[in-house]
Design a protein around this nucleic acid. Sequence first.
DNA 1: CAAAAATCAGATAAAAGATTCTTAATACGC
DNA 2: GCGTATTAAGAATCTTTTATCTGATTTTTG
Lengths: 152, 152
Amino acid sequence: MIISKSCIYAIQAAIYVAAESKQGYVPINIIAERLNISFHFLTKVLQDFTHSGLMISYRGPRGGVALAKPADEITLHDLVEAIDGTDIFTECMLGLPGCGTAEPCPTHEHWVEVRQRFTTLSQQLTLKDMAAKASLMHVRLANGVKHHTQMA
Amino acid sequence: MIISKSCIYAIQAAIYVAAESKQGYVPINIIAERLNISFHFLTKVLQDFTHSGLMISYRGPRGGVALAKPADEITLHDLVEAIDGTDIFTECMLGLPGCGTAEPCPTHEHWVEVRQRFTTLSQQLTLKDMAAKASLMHVRLANGVKHHTQMA
DNA sequence: CAAAAATCAGATAAAAGATTCTTAATACGC
DNA sequence: GCGTATTAAGAATCTTTTATCTGATTTTTG
């Protein structure tokens, strides 16, 4: 898997929050329930978002988490970086420290192209885009879960 | 990391064997020593290559492993597939089973492009190419290891 | 003060990575 | 031929990381 499970959950949660952002703070237990994720696990993961300034949280009744910025100012790259770090965007395919044009590994040239394309695309794809797609029918948000903004 | 550590070791070993292929079977302990990898760990990893028909092995004195096919008929894709499987080439970024054009996840379109590019490039990059690069000065094969075909 | 919510601390489970020991096959010297 | 050294294969254990779960604590509303 290209990204960790924590990161997958975090991305799904961020999309959910973005889609619900009109309603102020979204409680984590609601997110966890809708996405079939363990509540406490999601709690820990989302703290990385608050620590990195992508989300804000509020305790107590009517509390929860919310985006700290407009959804079109948060990219997939931001989300991945906050949870898994930047390794995936910069690392050598063979994990060699210092691999670069000066001292390339045998896969360097090819891998750099893929890595670069991934970086660019993930910087272009915003949370707003993803939330919009998730709100459409037949676009899946989580395992077995289709997102509908107007839910009973 | 995009591929497992086992896979990294396996790729490095395959490149080493390809570069030494003139000398018949290459003993695994020599490979492990030259690449700073645990011998027994490498043994287990390379068995996946023999099981999948990419390498052949021979026991006893003057034994070791060797490529089962010419190095230009083995691609990076083959190597990765033999160790880590095909998931990386086919999996959804969010790990959703069945994600595709019919039922895409919010990242599907973008991710498919990266995945496809990676697949294509890894199918084009052959072991012969990589071994040739590894034999050049300043091209690194493993951590702190530069490959030289004519070694003392 | 009570209920709702995030936060914090810790234990448990599962997977990946790495090590150690034993066994089986083979060539080569005698 | 026979025994020994060499080499891959196999089994079992240990460590580390990742993933998951459980319980207690703090903040905040009403």
